[in-house]
Protein backbone atom coordinates (compact mmCIF):
# COMPACT_ATOMS: atom_id res chain seq x y z
CA UNK A 1 0.00 0.00 0.00
CA UNK A 2 2.85 2.35 0.93
CA UNK A 3 4.53 1.88 -2.42
CA UNK A 4 1.23 2.35 -4.20
CA UNK A 5 0.69 5.71 -2.48
CA UNK A 6 4.29 6.68 -3.20
CA UNK A 7 3.79 6.16 -6.93
CA UNK A 8 0.45 7.99 -6.80
CA UNK A 9 2.32 10.97 -5.31
CA UNK A 10 5.01 10.73 -8.01
CA UNK A 11 2.27 10.50 -10.64
CA UNK A 12 0.41 13.54 -9.35
CA UNK A 13 3.63 15.58 -9.48
CA UNK A 14 4.30 14.48 -13.07
CA UNK A 15 0.65 15.06 -13.91
CA UNK A 16 0.74 18.64 -12.65
CA UNK A 17 3.59 19.41 -15.05
CA UNK A 18 1.65 17.80 -17.90
CA UNK A 19 -1.31 19.97 -16.93
CA UNK A 20 0.81 23.12 -17.01
CA UNK A 21 2.00 22.23 -20.51
CA UNK A 22 -1.51 21.30 -21.64
CA UNK A 23 -2.82 24.63 -20.37
CA UNK A 24 -1.14 26.52 -23.22
CA UNK A 25 -2.46 24.16 -25.88
CA UNK A 26 -6.03 24.49 -24.59
CA UNK A 27 -5.75 28.29 -24.24
CA UNK A 28 -4.75 28.67 -27.90
CA UNK A 29 -7.34 26.18 -29.09
CA UNK A 30 -10.17 27.76 -27.11
CA UNK A 31 -9.47 31.18 -28.57
CA UNK A 32 -8.40 30.33 -32.09
CA UNK A 33 -9.56 26.76 -32.82
CA UNK A 34 -5.96 26.01 -33.75
CA UNK A 35 -4.23 22.97 -32.30
CA UNK A 36 -0.73 24.31 -31.67
CA UNK A 37 1.61 21.44 -32.50
CA UNK A 38 4.57 23.72 -31.80
CA UNK A 39 3.64 24.28 -28.16
CA UNK A 40 6.31 21.83 -27.00
CA UNK A 41 8.89 23.88 -28.83
CA UNK A 42 7.60 27.11 -27.28
CA UNK A 43 8.29 25.35 -23.97
CA UNK A 44 11.72 24.37 -25.27
CA UNK A 45 12.46 28.03 -25.99
CA UNK A 46 11.12 28.95 -22.53
CA UNK A 47 13.55 26.45 -21.01
CA UNK A 48 16.47 27.77 -23.03
CA UNK A 49 15.55 31.38 -22.20
CA UNK A 50 15.47 30.41 -18.52
CA UNK A 51 18.95 28.88 -18.95
CA UNK A 52 20.20 31.94 -20.81
CA UNK A 53 19.06 34.40 -18.18
CA UNK A 54 19.64 32.35 -15.02
CA UNK A 55 22.97 30.75 -15.96
CA UNK A 56 24.64 32.42 -18.93
CA UNK A 57 23.65 36.01 -18.19
CA UNK A 58 23.81 35.67 -14.40
CA UNK A 59 27.40 34.38 -14.64
CA UNK A 60 28.48 36.93 -17.24
CA UNK A 61 31.52 38.98 -16.19
CA UNK A 62 29.64 42.27 -16.48
CA UNK A 63 26.91 41.21 -14.02
CA UNK A 64 27.22 42.11 -10.32
CA UNK A 65 28.56 39.19 -8.27
CA UNK A 66 25.41 39.02 -6.12
CA UNK A 67 23.32 38.00 -9.10
CA UNK A 68 25.42 34.90 -9.59
CA UNK A 69 25.53 34.04 -5.91
CA UNK A 70 23.90 36.15 -3.22
CA UNK A 71 25.68 35.44 0.04
CA UNK A 72 24.87 37.97 2.78
CA UNK A 73 26.47 37.30 6.15
CA UNK A 74 23.22 36.16 7.73
CA UNK A 75 22.74 33.56 4.99
CA UNK A 76 26.25 32.19 5.45
CA UNK A 77 25.64 32.04 9.19
CA UNK A 78 22.30 30.29 8.62
CA UNK A 79 23.84 27.71 6.28
CA UNK A 80 26.66 27.05 8.76
CA UNK A 81 28.16 23.66 8.06
CA UNK A 82 24.87 21.96 7.26
CA UNK A 83 25.47 18.85 5.12
CA UNK A 84 24.58 19.06 1.44
CA UNK A 85 20.91 18.27 0.73
CA UNK A 86 19.87 18.85 4.34
CA UNK A 87 16.84 21.18 4.48
CA UNK A 88 18.97 24.02 5.86
CA UNK A 89 21.68 23.66 3.21
CA UNK A 90 19.06 23.34 0.47
CA UNK A 91 17.18 26.44 1.60
CA UNK A 92 20.42 28.46 1.97
CA UNK A 93 21.55 27.38 -1.48
CA UNK A 94 18.17 28.28 -2.96
CA UNK A 95 18.14 31.73 -1.30
CA UNK A 96 21.66 32.29 -2.62
CA UNK A 97 20.40 31.40 -6.11
CA UNK A 98 17.22 33.51 -5.82
CA UNK A 99 18.53 36.52 -7.82
CA UNK A 100 19.48 34.28 -10.74
CA UNK A 101 16.21 32.34 -10.47
CA UNK A 102 14.18 35.54 -10.56
CA UNK A 103 16.27 36.93 -13.41
CA UNK A 104 15.78 33.66 -15.25
CA UNK A 105 12.02 33.58 -14.72
CA UNK A 106 11.45 37.23 -15.63
CA UNK A 107 13.72 36.94 -18.65
CA UNK A 108 12.13 33.68 -19.83
CA UNK A 109 8.59 35.05 -19.43
CA UNK A 110 9.42 38.24 -21.32
CA UNK A 111 11.43 36.59 -24.08
CA UNK A 112 8.87 33.83 -24.62
CA UNK A 113 6.07 36.40 -24.69
CA UNK A 114 7.91 38.36 -27.39
CA UNK A 115 8.50 35.15 -29.34
CA UNK A 116 4.82 34.20 -29.13
CA UNK A 117 3.73 37.67 -30.26
CA UNK A 118 6.09 37.46 -33.23
CA UNK A 119 4.71 34.05 -34.16
CA UNK A 120 1.15 35.27 -33.77
CA UNK A 121 1.64 38.45 -35.79
CA UNK A 122 3.86 37.06 -38.54
CA UNK A 123 2.49 33.56 -39.02
CA UNK A 124 -0.91 33.08 -37.46
CA UNK A 125 -2.65 36.40 -38.02
CA UNK A 126 -2.07 36.51 -41.80
CA UNK A 127 -3.83 33.15 -41.91
CA UNK A 128 -6.96 34.50 -40.23
CA UNK A 129 -9.93 33.63 -42.36
CA UNK A 130 -8.11 30.67 -43.91
CA UNK A 131 -9.05 27.14 -42.95
CA UNK A 132 -8.06 25.97 -39.49
CA UNK A 133 -6.18 23.18 -41.27
CA UNK A 134 -3.78 25.70 -42.84
CA UNK A 135 -3.14 27.28 -39.46
CA UNK A 136 -2.56 23.90 -37.82
CA UNK A 137 -0.11 22.90 -40.55
CA UNK A 138 1.75 26.14 -40.09
CA UNK A 139 2.27 25.22 -36.42
CA UNK A 140 3.69 21.88 -37.61
CA UNK A 141 6.15 23.77 -39.80
CA UNK A 142 6.94 25.98 -36.84
CA UNK A 143 8.25 22.93 -34.97
CA UNK A 144 11.17 22.59 -37.37
CA UNK A 145 11.81 26.33 -37.48
CA UNK A 146 11.96 26.52 -33.68
CA UNK A 147 13.98 23.32 -33.32
CA UNK A 148 16.49 24.42 -35.93
CA UNK A 149 16.74 27.89 -34.43
CA UNK A 150 17.32 26.47 -30.94
CA UNK A 151 20.11 24.33 -32.38
CA UNK A 152 21.71 27.39 -33.94
CA UNK A 153 21.41 29.60 -30.87
CA UNK A 154 22.26 27.15 -28.10
CA UNK A 155 24.33 23.94 -27.98
CA UNK A 156 22.28 20.80 -27.67
CA UNK A 157 24.23 19.56 -24.67
CA UNK A 158 22.33 18.78 -21.47
CA UNK A 159 22.74 21.72 -19.07
CA UNK A 160 21.89 22.27 -15.41
CA UNK A 161 19.64 25.13 -14.33
CA UNK A 162 18.66 26.25 -10.83
CA UNK A 163 15.43 24.79 -9.43
CA UNK A 164 12.49 27.07 -8.74
CA UNK A 165 12.36 25.91 -5.12
CA UNK A 166 14.74 24.46 -2.53
CA UNK A 167 15.28 20.75 -3.04
CA UNK A 168 15.44 18.42 -0.06
CA UNK A 169 13.55 15.23 0.73
CA UNK A 170 10.38 15.54 2.81
CA UNK A 171 9.65 12.30 4.64
CA UNK A 172 6.29 11.64 6.21
CA UNK A 173 3.95 8.87 7.26
CA UNK A 174 0.59 8.10 5.72
CA UNK A 175 -1.47 5.03 6.64
CA UNK A 176 1.54 3.91 8.69
CA UNK A 177 3.73 3.97 5.58
CA UNK A 178 6.98 5.88 5.15
CA UNK A 179 6.67 8.14 2.13
CA UNK A 180 8.75 10.90 0.63
CA UNK A 181 8.72 13.65 -1.92
CA UNK A 182 11.22 16.28 -2.93
CA UNK A 183 10.47 19.78 -1.75
CA UNK A 184 11.46 21.04 -5.22
CA UNK A 185 8.76 18.86 -6.75
CA UNK A 186 6.24 20.14 -4.22
CA UNK A 187 7.07 23.71 -5.27
CA UNK A 188 6.68 22.70 -8.94
CA UNK A 189 3.31 21.11 -8.13
CA UNK A 190 2.12 24.23 -6.31
CA UNK A 191 3.32 26.56 -9.08
CA UNK A 192 1.60 24.44 -11.74
CA UNK A 193 -1.69 24.17 -9.85
CA UNK A 194 -1.62 27.86 -8.92
CA UNK A 195 -1.13 28.91 -12.54
CA UNK A 196 -3.83 26.52 -13.66
CA UNK A 197 -6.32 27.79 -11.07
CA UNK A 198 -5.44 31.45 -11.77
CA UNK A 199 -6.07 31.04 -15.46
CA UNK A 200 -9.39 29.37 -14.88
CA UNK A 201 -10.41 32.23 -12.57
CA UNK A 202 -9.26 34.81 -15.12
CA UNK A 203 -11.31 33.14 -17.85
CA UNK A 204 -14.33 32.99 -15.62
CA UNK A 205 -14.32 36.38 -13.95
CA UNK A 206 -12.41 38.93 -16.07
CA UNK A 207 -13.42 40.85 -19.20
CA UNK A 208 -10.60 39.38 -21.25
CA UNK A 209 -11.56 35.93 -20.00
CA UNK A 210 -15.12 36.47 -21.12
CA UNK A 211 -13.80 37.76 -24.47
CA UNK A 212 -11.76 34.60 -24.94
CA UNK A 213 -14.73 32.41 -24.09
CA UNK A 214 -17.00 34.37 -26.40
CA UNK A 215 -14.49 34.13 -29.24
CA UNK A 216 -14.21 30.41 -28.62
CA UNK A 217 -17.98 30.07 -28.97
CA UNK A 218 -18.29 31.99 -32.23
CA UNK A 219 -15.69 34.29 -33.76
CA UNK A 220 -18.13 36.11 -36.07
CA UNK A 221 -20.59 36.85 -33.30
CA UNK A 222 -17.74 37.95 -31.06
CA UNK A 223 -16.64 40.40 -33.78
CA UNK A 224 -20.21 41.64 -34.11
CA UNK A 225 -20.40 42.16 -30.35
CA UNK A 226 -17.39 44.46 -30.51
CA UNK A 227 -14.80 42.06 -29.17
CA UNK A 228 -11.32 42.68 -30.54
CA UNK A 229 -10.80 39.14 -31.82
CA UNK A 230 -7.18 39.62 -33.01
CA UNK A 231 -6.32 40.85 -29.53
CA UNK A 232 -7.98 37.76 -28.09
CA UNK A 233 -5.72 35.67 -30.33
CA UNK A 234 -2.65 37.54 -29.09
CA UNK A 235 -3.76 37.10 -25.49
CA UNK A 236 -4.18 33.37 -25.99
CA UNK A 237 -0.68 33.06 -27.47
CA UNK A 238 0.68 35.16 -24.61
CA UNK A 239 -0.94 32.85 -22.07
CA UNK A 240 0.47 29.81 -23.89
CA UNK A 241 3.99 31.24 -24.12
CA UNK A 242 4.23 32.47 -20.53
CA UNK A 243 2.83 29.32 -18.95
CA UNK A 244 5.08 27.46 -21.38
CA UNK A 245 8.10 29.41 -20.12
CA UNK A 246 7.33 28.37 -16.55
CA UNK A 247 6.79 24.77 -17.68
CA UNK A 248 10.10 24.92 -19.53
CA UNK A 249 11.93 26.20 -16.44
CA UNK A 250 10.38 23.44 -14.33
CA UNK A 251 11.20 20.71 -16.86
CA UNK A 252 14.77 21.96 -17.30
CA UNK A 253 15.42 22.07 -13.57
CA UNK A 254 13.76 18.71 -12.98
CA UNK A 255 15.10 16.61 -15.86
CA UNK A 256 17.96 18.69 -17.24
CA UNK A 257 17.89 21.05 -20.20
CA UNK A 258 18.03 19.35 -23.57
CA UNK A 259 16.22 19.49 -26.94
CA UNK A 260 14.15 16.49 -25.75
CA UNK A 261 11.91 18.98 -23.92
CA UNK A 262 10.36 19.95 -27.28
CA UNK A 263 9.36 16.39 -28.07
CA UNK A 264 8.06 15.88 -24.54
CA UNK A 265 5.85 18.93 -24.98
CA UNK A 266 4.61 17.52 -28.27
CA UNK A 267 3.65 14.26 -26.58
CA UNK A 268 1.35 16.19 -24.23
CA UNK A 269 -0.98 16.73 -27.20
CA UNK A 270 -2.22 13.19 -26.62
CA UNK A 271 -3.10 14.11 -23.05
CA UNK A 272 -5.01 17.16 -24.29
CA UNK A 273 -6.97 15.00 -26.73
CA UNK A 274 -7.81 12.68 -23.89
CA UNK A 275 -9.11 15.49 -21.71
CA UNK A 276 -10.87 17.41 -24.46
CA UNK A 277 -9.22 20.07 -26.59
CA UNK A 278 -11.35 22.88 -25.21
CA UNK A 279 -11.73 21.83 -21.61
CA UNK A 280 -9.33 23.00 -18.90
CA UNK A 281 -10.99 20.73 -16.33
CA UNK A 282 -10.81 17.80 -18.75
CA UNK A 283 -7.11 18.19 -19.43
CA UNK A 284 -6.40 18.55 -15.72
CA UNK A 285 -8.08 15.20 -15.09
CA UNK A 286 -6.35 13.62 -18.11
CA UNK A 287 -2.95 14.98 -17.05
CA UNK A 288 -3.29 13.54 -13.57
CA UNK A 289 -4.48 10.22 -14.96
CA UNK A 290 -1.61 9.97 -17.45
CA UNK A 291 0.90 11.04 -14.80
CA UNK A 292 -0.33 8.38 -12.38
CA UNK A 293 -0.55 5.70 -15.11
CA UNK A 294 3.01 6.49 -16.20
CA UNK A 295 4.24 6.26 -12.66
CA UNK A 296 2.43 2.97 -12.01
CA UNK A 297 3.66 1.52 -15.30
CA UNK A 298 7.23 2.55 -14.43
CA UNK A 299 6.84 0.82 -11.07
CA UNK A 300 5.31 -2.42 -12.27
CA UNK A 301 6.39 -2.81 -15.88
CA UNK A 302 9.65 -0.86 -16.23
CA UNK A 303 10.88 1.87 -18.53
CA UNK A 304 10.29 0.57 -22.05
CA UNK A 305 6.64 -0.37 -21.48
CA UNK A 306 6.00 2.59 -19.19
CA UNK A 307 6.47 4.88 -22.17
CA UNK A 308 3.62 3.21 -24.04
CA UNK A 309 0.98 2.39 -21.41
CA UNK A 310 -0.40 5.92 -20.81
CA UNK A 311 -0.78 6.53 -24.53
CA UNK A 312 -2.60 3.25 -25.04
CA UNK A 313 -5.01 4.55 -22.39
CA UNK A 314 -5.32 7.81 -24.34
CA UNK A 315 -6.21 5.85 -27.49
CA UNK A 316 -8.82 3.81 -25.64
CA UNK A 317 -10.44 6.95 -24.21
CA UNK A 318 -10.48 8.64 -27.62
CA UNK A 319 -12.06 5.56 -29.18
CA UNK A 320 -14.83 5.61 -26.60
CA UNK A 321 -15.15 9.41 -26.32
CA UNK A 322 -13.77 11.02 -29.50
CA UNK A 323 -14.04 14.47 -27.92
CA UNK A 324 -12.19 13.46 -24.78
CA UNK A 325 -13.40 13.43 -21.20
CA UNK A 326 -14.96 16.87 -21.21
CA UNK A 327 -14.45 18.21 -24.71
CA UNK A 328 -17.35 19.91 -26.41
CA UNK A 329 -18.87 17.80 -29.14
CA UNK A 330 -18.91 19.74 -32.38
CA UNK A 331 -22.29 19.86 -34.04
CA UNK A 332 -22.18 20.49 -37.76
CA UNK A 333 -25.30 21.99 -39.26
CA UNK A 334 -25.96 20.88 -42.81
Amino acid sequence: MGQFIQYIINGVISGSILALIALGIVAVFKATKVVNFAHGHLILFGAYFYFTFSVVLADAPFMPAWVSSWEPAWLIAYAGDAPMFSPRAAIASWVSDLPRILLGLVGALAANAVLALIIERLIMRPLLGQSAFAMILSTVGLIWVLEGSAGLIWTAEAEQVPALGPNFPIRFQLFDQNLFLFSGSLVNLLVALLLFASLMLVLRYTRSGVAIRATAEDQSTAYAMGINVPRVFSTAWLVASTTGAVAGAILASRNGLSPAIGLFGLSVLAVVLMGGLDSFAGVLIASMLVGILSSMAQWKLGGGVAEIVPYVAVLVVILIRPHGFMGQEEIERI
Partner: peptide, 21 residues
Protein backbone atom coordinates in the same frame (compact mmCIF):
# COMPACT_ATOMS: atom_id res chain seq x y z
CA UNK B 1 17.22 -3.78 -10.16
CA UNK B 2 17.32 -3.24 -13.91
CA UNK B 3 15.87 0.16 -14.64
CA UNK B 4 15.30 1.53 -18.13
CA UNK B 5 15.14 5.31 -18.52
CA UNK B 6 14.60 7.73 -21.36
CA UNK B 7 17.87 8.78 -23.00
CA UNK B 8 16.94 12.41 -22.28
CA UNK B 9 14.44 13.95 -19.89
CA UNK B 10 14.05 10.87 -17.68
CA UNK B 11 11.49 10.81 -14.86
CA UNK B 12 14.03 11.14 -12.06
CA UNK B 13 11.54 10.85 -9.18
CA UNK B 14 10.28 7.42 -10.19
CA UNK B 15 13.77 6.12 -10.90
CA UNK B 16 15.03 7.34 -7.53
CA UNK B 17 12.01 5.73 -5.83
CA UNK B 18 12.82 2.40 -7.46
CA UNK B 19 16.47 2.69 -6.54
CA UNK B 20 15.48 3.45 -2.95
CA UNK B 21 13.28 0.35 -2.85
Amino acid sequence: LEEVTRAEGADIENHVTKLAQ
